[in-house]
Design a protein around this nucleic acid. Structure first.
Lengths: 193, 193
DNA sequence: GGGTGATTAGAACGATCGTTCCAATCTAAG
DNA sequence: CTTAGATTGGAACGATCGTTCTAATCACCC
């Protein structure tokens, strides 16, 4: 009954995100969210609205703090070719990590909800377009730096890389075999010449 | 109130499959299944067991009647290169069809359940391995028929094609843009030389 | 120290969940 | 005609769903 702590809105959102990420929208109950966040049911509704709004906030939180952070980090720290390679490696390595492998929250949600929820679909489509744009920039930069052959069409190459990356995310959930994913990623890199 | 019809076990399973396919496991209620199949709640439980068993039966039904049927049909009617091309085309064309686009039931389920249900994961992994084997056979056959370059490694190529196909399935749900999917498929074919 | 507002635990809401059961009704075989 | 078994509509089960609400408790400001 006693008052215990004031919560941080972003920390709580982060905890909710991890639960949605691991189990999906439908399989996560409000009770699960109450328990994983540690805050009260009433506070949850007062702060984030209903379950769907909290889910949308979680998805945007993931998009900013995981996807954007990854892209920006790679773009800052690596050369074009290495940035592409590490983007693939990030997801290949996730499988080898002990503990639960939740894949990519955005990809999981794409198949669960985006066909029936336009707002969700937009978040995901935008994220995918940004990854596609990232790949295209890396190809163009790589070409001007002489790291990648000029014969590559940046846009088409970026689309192919995106599709392969998404395919790896699907395979990672049903066949979490590091060597399989690694060889697909390596093969994708070979196609860059 | 009156007795109306004896149901066909396979027809009912087919109807249940389409509902699970469209909405996923969690978002489909037993009430939905009763309504879409048209048979009684009691008959449903007596015939197929509980919801999860019916889902597993639906997934196997899809695997046999959609995935296996597609693979066998292509392998029978087409040359190797054309079989690969049409495998991609099958999913690209699905998007342009009016009406709901449910994607691939196996891929949808891979992301929703296979991380938390070993029995589901096995069905999906086996199906993916068979598609991979199909691609590998087509590459090998294509090489011996002179349709495809001998420089291709059949196994690595098959893995890459599988990943690209799965990627198209993800994109189809969040960005159902025919020209995007078509260009990815075309690009994948170009990689075959 | 009294007031304000956030946060708490937890009850309560109606709806729906998956599942089981029942009495009635039908088909088909003996 | 009788019996057995399948199927029916529909009630009923306890559990859980998402959501709202209440009364008590806390921190903070004036």
């Amino acid at each position: 009954m006693p008052w215990e702590k004031q919560f941080n809105v972003d920390d709580v959102l982060d905890k909710a995100m991890r639960t949605f990420w691991a189990h999906g929208y439908e399989a996560t109950s409000v009770q699960d969210l109450v328990e994983c966040t540690g805050i009260n049911r009433g506070s949850l509704y007062a702060t984030y609205g209903d379950k769907r709004e909290l889910f949308l906030a979680s998805l945007r939180h993931y998009d900013q703090n995981v996807r954007q952070a990854l892209v920006k980090g790679l773009e800052r720290e690596c050369g074009p070719r290495e940035a592409i390679r590490r983007m693939f490696q990030a997801f290949v390595d996730k499988v080898t990590v002990t503990g639960p492998n939740e894949g990519c929250f955005l990809a999981n949600t794409a198949l669960e909800l985006s066909a029936h929820d336009a707002e969700v679909a937009k978040i995901i489509a935008d994220a995918q377009k940004e990854i596609e744009a990232f790949f295209a920039r890396m190809v163009t930069n790589g070409q001007s730096e002489g790291e990648l052959p000029l014969s590559l069409n940046p846009d088409a190459t970026a689309q192919g890389l995106l599709a392969t990356l998404l395919g790896i995310l699907v395979l990672a959930r049903s066949r979490p075999d590091p060597s399989l994913l690694q060889s697909i990623a390596d093969d994708a890199m070979k196609r860059l010449g």
